[in-house]
């Protein structure tokens, strides 16, 4: 299993077999990146770090503009989720993964209460004011990288994050 601090895996695409599987089901979806960026190393203990969370689960505050699940090429916007939010104040707008479990307990896909607990217990220093969510269905990886990924990265940095937990839905 690849590990973030396994130097042998730095600079390599993780789980290369996954791409072959996806390409078999969705021809032409193979994504290759020659400029794969290695994961950054932490510069302070987790107990002192301000952690952010980025998820492709399509979670958003109730009442905000729903993610565009109908668009055939995807939605390249993101939503800020206040890190103090409760699951009752959040909802999911996406149609590409089973949400039965998440609708019972949002934490299974967007573990906001677990993160709040870890911050309260001192396991992590704190949470950024916002956590971030988007929908993972995007047909244009170049646009995704140039717009959505860059926008989220800027927002995470502006929020003062020392570390980011990335979670695919």
């Amino acid at each position: 299993m690849a590990h973030s601090n396994d130097t042998a895996n730095e600079g390599r695409q993780l789980r290369p077999g996954l791409w072959a599987t996806i390409n078999e089901r969705y021809p032409g979806s193979m994504i290759t990146k020659d400029d794969f960026v290695p994961l950054a190393r932490p510069h302070k203990p987790l107990s002192e770090a301000r952690l952010s969370f980025v998820s492709s689960a399509g979670v958003q505050p109730v009442g905000t503009l729903p993610f565009d699940v109908a668009h055939p090429v995807g939605d390249y916007s993101f939503r800020r989720v206040p890190s103090t939010a409760t699951p009752a104040g959040l909802e999911i707008h996406q149609i590409k993964y089973p949400t039965h479990g998440a609708l019972k307990d949002l934490n299974v896909i967007f573990p906001i209460e677990r993160l709040q607990e870890l911050a309260a217990e001192g396991v992590i220093g704190s949470l950024t004011p916002s956590l971030f969510s988007f929908i993972g269905y995007n047909m244009d990886p170049e646009r995704f990288e140039r717009t959505l990924a860059a926008d989220i990265a800027d927002a995470v940095v502006a929020d003062g994050a020392d570390a980011v937990l990335l979670s695919p839905a």
Binding site: V69, A70, Q94, K96
Partner: peptide
């Protein structure tokens, strides 16, 4: 065109036979 895709999902949802895992 965007509306056309939205309308597709609108009428699928209106039918009551929703095959998708999530929600609009």
């Amino acid at each position: 065109a965007h509306l056309f895709f939205d309308l597709h999902f609108y009428f699928v949802k209106h039918s009551g036979a929703w095959i998708h895992d999530g929600t609009l």
